[in-house]
Design a protein around this nucleic acid. Structure first.
Lengths: 337, 337
DNA sequence: CCGTCCGGCAAAAACGTTTTAATATCGTTG
DNA sequence: CAACGATATTAAAACGTTTTTGCCGGACGG
């Protein structure tokens, strides 16, 4: 009746072998003779046996799951990363346990505990700060950790990230090249590494063009990084005077800004050029399509997972890597003159 | 040294109690005397003990994880659902294992097997077809299943969904009320239940308004449901003549359509009114903000999880429910005359 | 004062798998 | 022909919890 309860023992009994042999055809098929193997496999199919993962994990000492902790599952950026992770992990036979910290340190903490309880094989995390202590707790347990979208500061740690300084520089340089001299940088909280570095890059670009950032780059810091905040930023900004160009720290802000500008009768790109960051799908789909800085998001997830599984499965041969991708400028209507 | 290896036994030894007692303070704190309990809890903190989930699952017969299988993690609709699931599950102490089927039956199958191996306590799934056989395999194993965004056809099955016929009717009725008589329905594959039912609703609305759908509603079926497909639909559509109004089966299609229309010099809403479906965040943020049919997406995820956990934890008192939410019309610029 | 009940705890079995060491079977070689 | 190694399989011991059963002592009712 209850086919769910069929264990390796019953398979063994039915196939006329010992449980150990069944385990071998499951895990080391080459160690068992052709005849026995096919017989056991047939019984497995007949009985609808599926291995009890927990028993396996308990005895083997490690699971076939990885944890994924993201800051905001609602942001297409993280969604793309998650898709890359899920694809690679799934192909490798791993399950992905999802944790959404919602930018809340307490939630992140709680998720980490769940991952520890589940004895995930490894952890992929987009941390929102640099405190490595929490992660050490996991690492001490033998759980591999790979930082995603955050460069590791230590050589014994894998990470994949995209150069945000370069990205910021590309964005601002592009605006300047299009003739802007009065720029605005609209950003999320400046406690966020990405926001800081993109700003640094922008300042470098201005300096390189002979423009003093202090005089030519206004910074508008918003508490959130969504479209609502972007539109609000437009309302804050315009009374102070219309700039030549706006650089937003992500596309959600930029889309909101675009809407805010147009509502105020400011034309993009004729009056103001506008560029975002991340190149989410909606950037190309917005009515005035948005120039942006593209990051290899999906790839970020895939490579991170590849690194993680290598670290977990080949601990001795594994070489820790800090991979830094370069972003790419995507020019669309919002910066065409 | 390796704090990861501290087991319940060591805690017991250090606290001068038996392992069974430690297990009790973990799972039935009320059954152990105040003094012993606090002593054990202190030792747990000191040693940094964290329960081995697999051992627990093995012995207890059920895990504290739920599986979530979605069709497309890249679609904001599913992302919102996932956020609702994650929040509720996380609060209840459950971990969420994510499976992304990418609209691929084989991938979905594979994910189900992983869920079975992991012995998830329950499964939340947005199935893309009506074949219940696959799910019976899980149910026979005692794994609860709740259908998400898909009404169950059987009384022994929980489901949460939103009435798509009503939604389709609302959308079309709104367009007609705004004066449209020459409508177009842009949809994804008509093998998808949601696409079919929204169409049925639209036809009902036309009929109710005294317009024969055959004469007044053109249907454009696209192979995908993203913005690219929407823009392509505009290019297919316009040469045949500009309609009064366009109803898109989701917001991604609608955003693409909007862009396609504006590029062709067709003004929204002056020349054509446009409405989407789902009310994703980007609908409000697009330059001509998009009217849409709002679904309680996040709530869908939460309620589904609530139902699932009730089914798993109180099997005898649990009453299966097929919950059907009603959608809501959101009017924005794209249908303002 | 004796028998009974009950709260608090310990002892031990069980969950389903993996893995190690041991055993049986066979062909090969000195 | 004996000894040996290689190969295929088995038996049994783990892994860390949960849960059942039972023991002990003190409170309580008769």
């Amino acid at each position: 009746m209850t086919p769910g309860t069929v264990s390796i023992k019953e398979v063994a009994a039915r196939a006329g072998v010992s449980p150990g042999t069944v385990s071998n055809v499951l895990n080391r098929p080459h160690k068992v003779a052709e005849g026995t193997r096919s017989r056991v496999e047939q019984v497995i199919r007949d009985l609808g046996f599926v291995r009890h993962g927990s028993a396996s994990t308990l005895r083997a000492g490690h699971s076939r799951t990885v944890g994924l902790s993201v800051i905001d599952i609602g942001n297409p950026f993280f969604t793309d990363v998650a898709a890359g992770v899920e694809d690679y992990a799934s192909d490798a036979g791993y399950a992905v346990i999802l944790g959404n910290s919602s930018g809340d340190r307490v939630k992140e903490e709680r998720n980490l505990r769940v991952f520890a309880e589940q004895r995930v094989r490894g952890l992929l995390i987009t941390p929102f700060d640099d405190d490595p202590a929490r992660l050490d707790v996991l690492r001490d347990r033998g759980i591999g950790v790979v930082l995603v979208d955050h460069p590791a500061h230590r050589p014994d740690q894998c990470s994949v990230a995209v150069n945000d300084i370069t990205g910021g520089r590309m964005a601002a340089a592009h605006l300047v090249e299009r003739g802007a001299t009065d720029l605005v940088y609209v950003t999320g909280p400046l406690s966020i590494r990405q926001c800081i570095e993109r700003r640094v890059g922008a300042e470098q670009a201005l300096t390189a063009a002979g423009l003093d950032p202090a005089a030519h780059l206004r910074v508008v810091e918003m508490p959130a990084m969504n479209a609502r905040a972007g539109q609000w930023a437009a309302e804050l900004l315009l009374p102070e005077g219309v700039p030549d160009a706006v650089f937003c720290a992500n596309d959600l802000l930029a889309l909101g800004m675009l809407r805010g500008l147009m509502h105020a009768g400011v034309r993009v790109p004729e009056d103001v050029t506008l560029i975002g960051y991340d190149d989410i799908d909606f950037a190309a789909a917005s009515t005035v399509s948005l120039s942006s800085i593209r990051q290899p998001t999906y790839k970020l997830g895939r490579i991170a997972t590849e690194l993680l599984l290598d670290e977990c499965e080949n601990p001795e041969s594994h070489a820790h890597q800090q991979i830094m991708f370069q972003p790419e400028l995507v020019v669309r209507e919002s910066t065409r003159r």
